[in-house]
């Protein structure tokens, strides 16, 4: 892994992600909370139940620029955060591997949880990233298509009946 930066760490790479390493990196003497979110490849999606892997496609420069914007916006909305890391895989990612890891540290748990939730929601909505589902003998682009949002347009965090159950898993 490359030399780690001090406060914000953005990466899009084809190599496996280490949530443990990022959690250790984000641990700071003045932070009592470190929240780590791992987005995993699962074997089902909508009407598909035998997914073997996902394949992520992006332009690294465009995507990393958007992730930098996400972190900047998080620091505007929560002014006392410690370290923030957002790492995303590209290319083929196998079942039960992490496709994305987000780590946020803060002096207290409230802002750490909220900022981490904001970051993953923003990654899903604002980063130019396409996901192809692969199964035995076939593949297709994921069908949950939506237009890419500007980071500043992300709504503030409110419980959403459609996503709150997924968010608590």
């Amino acid at each position: 892994m490359e030399s780690a930066p001090t406060l914000d760490w953005v990466s899009i790479a084809s190599t496996p992600l280490s949530s443990a390493e990022l959690t250790t990196w984000a641990t700071r003497a003045n932070c009592g909370a470190v929240v780590t979110f791992c987005g995993m490849v699962r074997d089902n999606s909508h009407d598909l139940e035998e997914i073997e892997a996902l394949e992520y496609e992006t332009d690294v420069e465009l995507a990393e620029r958007r992730i930098v914007d996400i972190i900047a916006e998080a620091r505007i909305r929560w002014t006392n955060l410690g370290a923030i890391a957002i790492h995303h895989r590209m290319g083929r990612v196998e079942l039960s591997e992490s496709a994305v890891v987000i780590v946020v540290s803060a002096p207290h748990r409230g802002p750490a949880f909220e900022a981490a939730a904001f970051c993953i929601d923003a990654v899903k909505s604002c980063v130019p990233m396409w996901k192809r589902e692969l199964w035995q003998g076939g593949s297709a682009w994921s069908e949950e298509g939506r237009a890419i949002m500007k980071v500043q347009e992300m709504p503030s965090l409110e419980p959403d009946p459609e996503t709150s159950s997924a968010r608590t898993q």
């Binding site: 699962r42 995303h88 899903k124 996901k131 994921s142 997924a166």
Partner: peptide, 12 residues
């Protein structure tokens, strides 16, 4: 000029 179709989300 980048042509960006609707996205499918970066993870679960």
């Amino acid at each position: 000029i980048a042509v960006l179709p609707p996205i499918s989300g970066g993870c679960n």
